[in-house]
Design a binder for these strands. Structure first.
Lengths: 137, 137
DNA sequence: AGTACGTTAACGCAGCGTAATTGTGA
DNA sequence: CTCACAATTACGCTGCGTTAACGTAC
């Protein structure tokens, strides 16, 4: 009851849409640990479950190191309240950070709009005094 | 009529809130070119004007290289229509990119919220079945 | 023997942070 | 002599992309 249906790196790429390089990188960082048959890597259920979490974490903006922490938690407490609440805490911190990013982004867009307006005005106010340089290809 | 009231690197740090390292970095990239008195750098009006544009550009998400292009434009056509419209074009491209970032960010936040909900549910549904492992220091 | 896929280094990139070491003038 | 500030290398960091140079199995 634990065949774990192993798959190769190729199938992993296809299944998750990641490059082999990324997979090896995650492995080098200790986030996943596929079996080895000679030189070749074989990924099992566990690896796939972890990769899912890794990719989710990346989308949320977690760094690989922080993701490693969370994965370690999942190993220790298997669905236990302690790890869940810590995960929740991390997620909320991230959410706050993302919210801040969004605010900054909005501000930057607004500022950029203002700048664009200014440039447009300048173009509208003096669009004819162009030197020979402007006509050249 | 061109004293340009030169200031040192210390004053620059204070005036713009950037580190000396950043200033030297911009210089190494050819974005600014302070005078030299022996080894010491002296920044004039021109440098300050450029730094202002550099920092604005950075806030907008432009890379240093792209900023260098824009600065070059300001040098060539001094307020001319050609450079203004090119600047406008760049700015609009940037705006679009920022807008995309914002959309992605919103999606990520929404997904994270969903995940947070899930974890909350798990915590609410089974908050007592903690093993000895959880109590240990 | 060719080809298709896999493996291990190891450098590249962006934008500085962060030492480490060495002037230099007061 | 000794501060205090400045300057010059030059490596570190993040998350992989991208050659380069070799196995290996078919």
């Amino acid at each position: 009851m634990d065949g774990s249906d192993l798959i190769g790196i190729r199938e992993m790429r296809a299944a998750f849409g990641v490059t082999a390089r990324a997979l090896r990188h995650y492995e080098a960082k200790g986030l996943i640990a596929p079996l080895r048959v000679g030189e070749k890597r074989l990924y099992g259920r566990r690896d796939r479950a972890r990769l899912t979490l890794i990719l989710r974490g990346r989308r949320f903006g977690f760094g690989l190191e922080e993701i490693a922490e969370l994965l370690a938690l999942y190993d220790l407490g298997d669905g236990q309240a302690t790890q869940l609440s810590l995960t929740l805490a991390r997620a909320q911190e991230r959410r706050a950070a993302l919210e801040e990013q969004r605010a900054d982004l909005d501000a930057v867009i607004a500022e950029l709009d203002a700048q664009i307006e200014t440039v447009r005005d300048m173009l509208a106010r003096a669009p004819q005094e162009t030197s020979p340089t402007a006509a050249a290809n």
